[in-house]
Design a binder for these strands. Structure first.
Length: 874
RNA sequence: GAGGGUAUAGCUCAGCUGGUUAGAGUGCUUGCUUGACAUGCAAGAGGUCGUUGGUUCAAGUCCAACUAUCCUCACCA
């Protein structure tokens, strides 16, 4: 005999145990199997900076649902897990931890720093994997990867060298975004603009010849130390004659020219702009056009450097205050007005970004962007939902070169060496010993590392062994589905696409399935600073992983954000509890240990099997369409409404007739429908489905590798479905009227069913007795036997009379029936109006018209019945 | 400045390729120790589907404009 289910549903008591068994048995391992089709998902590697949050929980749940579904369908389903070294974020965390010990990076040196970083990685990557397991993620853990492991590093190096050799990677002095806190360059994508209150200082720059002043305004007066020109618009009448004249830069004393450039907006401010090529991206461009000198006045910490003369050593803020004061004293400050403007900030530390000219490595984007756009346009890669394509095109079409070098230690070191003797740059797959140009051994490697996204961009193929031509790569690449949030479409999705095309010659994935952000109950982003984050592990502890997973995928459609509340988790937990109890009920009424369907004779058996069959089709179709929420809702509805509230109740009488054929067949159908439904639910709620499945008759070792149910036309019973609908409608009708009249269930009453289909309603006798508090059921051609004082309810196919003598109030009853009469008349009128519209009849599809005709007939029959009842009462 | 999302029951949201008597969960009301489940059962109230037009035999669903709200990108010194 199999183990009995515990009386109460307690997920904490079995979830871990089940997961360990799965792992031990190796169910998550995907083999290269020529007899199977591959299905591959690579995980969006979580950063090793911390722990999984609710957004991860959603992401992993969706992936796990797809993987489990495909695995059951017989694919060799690989879900490849791993983590991301997250260079800038991790380095920041480590630096911060060191500061608490009173240490700096420079003090301990590169080697020691990296040792600490690896220790950090060991700790946090392990923690993340544990969290994945708590969620039930069926990753192939044997294939775990890390963006900075040996294989990924090899891929990064190969890519770098290739792109360099093709001229798609170059090094140059450009204006880049500099984070003074992280002390590194960051890419355009890593800058976030935030609206801040600032000041707009209006100042005067005097002409050298003493002929007056030019007025201009700035939000950053300290950058004037690096001004090398003042610009006006070439068409600006006011200043046309001044172009070419020389100004004396206040405080600094440098002579700078007045130039004309179309970049200047005549209508904004005074129409005069100071030009600081070293510290503003637009000014940099102007500088290039006019051959202006570039004077960098800030160091890597955002402080004024030696080019700032006597201001050297001051912080930006100090210099600003001092310069404003001096300008004011010199009578050159006209006014200061408050202004709201957008300030670029570092997406990791929120520090204001300092645009700064420096020598960095870049990827030339234009040649890569073209094919990347094309493959989406041509649907080689499908975006779900489709609208995400627009966001992608929008970004791709305005793309600028990608700054990939970072002044950090934690990351892939740039494989470039410089010859101290001849200045040659060497980029190669192997570390060079001598300069190929001059033979010097005096080589030094570039100090910088690569943007963390440079390695994540290669993730779909680097994890499968590339640049080696491995069997895994051949079998599992391109991957099938990428599941991720829309917030990293630029950082990651776009870069994987052009990288896959460039290096593999093939798209990295066929479908990108975007989900939204998980928000709190008020719709706010969950964040540390707001303190409104909910820890998925806490939820799992209290409600179970199944409840959490179910919550994250129900009532939500692709790409849309969702609000997370514990009320929803409770509802999911209640659902799990419902299944648990249904299974317990089945189990405690079970005398057999076999699977499979018996010969179906009973109407209710055919009904539930037919409904289940439909469910199989719907769930499969919706999962194929990534309509996870719809698929989940279908299973929910089937289990709760069809199976529990109706089918189990319907067969209870049979179950209590021990030893009969009817009893045995009911058991078989119960087991069949329940175990097969558990399979459909398994991708969503893996733990409870396995736990229950193991206690019921089943074939195979685990539900996780059991075959996905298949739709079969032979198991459709439309006639019985219709019959059951009529019976159920009648039961609902009787319950309804009894409830309205406040008749307690304990007071049974006779039903006189006036119908043309006596056989059908007679066969439902036991259901009426059980579910509609009927003492007996009589079918008849007229309601005479119900006596004078009977209420009646008209349902499709029958009028039901209930003699409730003392409770019947004829006046109320007449009013009620008249209400019903009016409702039906309105319905009929509506349908008739449609049907009398010649255009509708001629243009609408035949099936739609036929449907309306059927409706009309049905309502007319019901109306006739209601009117008969009314006539009898009157 | 450019692009996009959302607007359906008190609340949170479904409603796929136009045809349903507009749905679910939750909340609310009423009645139930109905031989698994009160984390439950049954019945019920509650919606002019943001506004105005248009397309169509037919619009919650498609189109346009508007209003509200959220987001992304760009950024004017």
């Amino acid at each position: 005999m199999k183990k009995q289910l515990e009386k109460t549903y307690d997920p904490a008591s079995f979830e871990d145990r089940i997961f360990h068994t799965w792992e031990e048995k190796g169910y998550f391992h995907a083999e290269i199997d020529p007899d199977k089709k591959p299905y591959t998902i690579v995980i969006p590697p979580p950063n090793i900076t911390g722990q999984l949050h609710m957004g991860h929980a959603l992401d992993e749940t969706l992936q796990d649902i797809l993987i489990r579904f495909k695995r059951m369908q017989g694919f060799s389903a690989l879900w490849l897990p791993g983590t991301d070294h997250a260079s800038i974020a991790t380095e920041a965390k480590i630096v911060e931890a060191m500061r608490e010990e009173g240490l700096t990076k420079e003090q301990i040196g590169r080697e020691e720093f990296l040792r600490r970083a690896w220790a950090w990685k060991e700790k946090y990557a392990g923690r993340i994997l544990e969290q994945l397991k708590k969620l039930g993620s069926s990753c192939d853990f044997a294939r775990e990867r890390f963006t900075l492991d040996e294989g990924c590093s090899k891929a990064v190096r190969e890519v770098f060298v290739r792109l360099y050799e093709k001229g798609l990677i170059y090094r140059g002095e450009r204006i880049i975004n500099w984070c003074p806190h992280c002390k590194t360059s960051i890419s355009d994508a890593e800058v976030e603009f935030v609206e801040k209150e600032g000041s707009f200082w209006h100042i005067r720059y005097p002409f050298k010849d003493g002929s007056g002043y030019l007025e201009l305004a700035t939000t950053r007066p300290e950058t004037m130390l690096g001004d090398t020109a003042v610009a006006v618009h070439p068409d600006d009448e006011r200043y046309r004659d001044l172009v070419g004249k020389t100004l004396i830069l206040p405080i600094v004393g440098r002579e700078i020219p007045v130039i004309a450039d179309e970049y200047v907006e005549m209508d904004f401010g005074t129409g005069v702009v100071k030009i600081t090529p070293a510290h503003d991206p637009n000014d940099f461009e102007v500088g290039l056009r006019h051959n202006l000198p570039v004077i960098n006045v800030m160091d890597e910490g955002g402080n004024i450097n030696e080019n700032g003369g006597r201001f050297a050593g001051m912080s930006g803020a100090e210099a600003r205050a001092q310069i404003v004061r001096e300008l004011d004293e010199a009578g050159l400050l006209i006014k200061t007005e408050p202004i709201k403007h957008n300030v670029g900030t570092c997406y990791r530390c929120r520090t204001a970004v300092e645009p700064r000219v420096s020598k960095q490595w870049f990827v030339k984007m234009q040649p890569l962007a073209g094919p990347a756009v094309k493959c989406v346009e041509e649907k080689e890669i499908k975006f779900i939902p489709e609208r995400m394509e627009k966001i992608y095109y929008n970004w791709m079409s305005n793309i600028k070169d990608w700054c990939i070098s970072r002044q950090l230690w934690w990351g892939h070191r740039i494989p470039a060496w410089y010859c101290a003797d001849c200045g040659e740059t060497i980029v190669s797959r192997e570390d060079p010993c001598v300069c190929p140009k001059c033979g010097s051994k005096n080589l030094s490697q570039d100090e910088d590392t690569l943007d963390t996204w440079f390695s994540s961009a290669l993730w779909p193929f680097s994890t499968l062994g590339w640049p080696e031509q491995t069997e895994e790569l051949k079998y599992f690449y391109p991957t099938d589905t990428l599941v991720t949030g829309y917030d990293i479409i630029f950082f990651w999705v776009a870069r994987m696409i052009f990288s896959g095309l460039e290096h593999m010659g093939e798209v990295p994935f066929k479908t990108v399935f975007f989900h939204g952000l998980v928000r709190d109950g008020q719709g706010r982003k969950m964040s540390k600073s707001l303190g409104n984050g909910i820890d998925p592990l806490e939820v799992i502890k209290e409600y179970g992983a199944d409840a959490l997973r179910f919550t994250l995928v129900t009532g939500n459609s692709p790409g849309n954000d969702l609000r997370f509340t514990t009320e929803k988790v409770e509802a999911s937990r209640n659902f799990a509890n419902k299944i648990w109890n249904a299974a317990r009920f089945v189990q405690m009424n079970l005398d057999i240990d076999e699977t499979g369907l018996p010969e179906l004779t009973a109407m209710e058996d055919k009904w539930i099997v037919s409904r289940f069959n439909t469910l199989v089709r719907e769930v499969t179709e919706n999962l194929d369409k990534f309509e996870i929420g719809v698929a989940a809702a279908k299973v929910y509805e089937f289990i709760w409404d069809c199976f529990c509230d109706w089918y189990i109740e319907l067969v209870k009488p049979r179950l209590y007739e021990k030893g009969t054929q009817a009893c045995l067949s009911a058991q078989k159908v119960l087991v069949y429908v329940l175990t097969e439904t558990l399979k459909l639910l398994h991708p969503f709620m893996p733990f409870i489905t396995e736990e229950i499945w193991q206690t019921l008759p089943h074939e195979g070792d685990s539900i996780i590798i059991s075959p996905w149910p298949e739709y079969s036309a032979e198991r459709e019973y439309p006639a019985e479905e219709k019959q059951m609908e009529l019976i159920m409608g009648a039961i609902r009708g009787v319950r309804n009227i009894r409830s309205q009249m406040n008749v307690p269930v304990s007071r049974k009453a006779k039903l006189v069913i006036v119908t043309k289909d006596k056989e059908l309603f007679q066969s439902g006798t036991v259901f009426f007795e059980k579910l509609a508090a009927a003492s007996s059921v009589e079918t008849a051609d007229s309601p005479e036997s119900a006596g004078e004082n009977a209420v009646s309810v008209v349902v499709e196919g029958a009028s039901i009379f209930i003699p409730l003598d003392d409770l019947v109030d004829r006046v109320k009853e007449i009013a009620r029936l008249e209400g019903e009469q009016a409702r039906l008349k309105a319905e009929i009128e509506r349908v008739e109006k449609k049907l009398s519209n010649e255009k509708f009849v001629s243009k609408a599809p035949e099936a739609v018209v036929a449907e309306e005709r059927k409706k009309k007939e049905k309502y007319q029959n019901m109306l006739a019945d209601v009117e008969k009842s009314l006539a009898a009462l009157k």
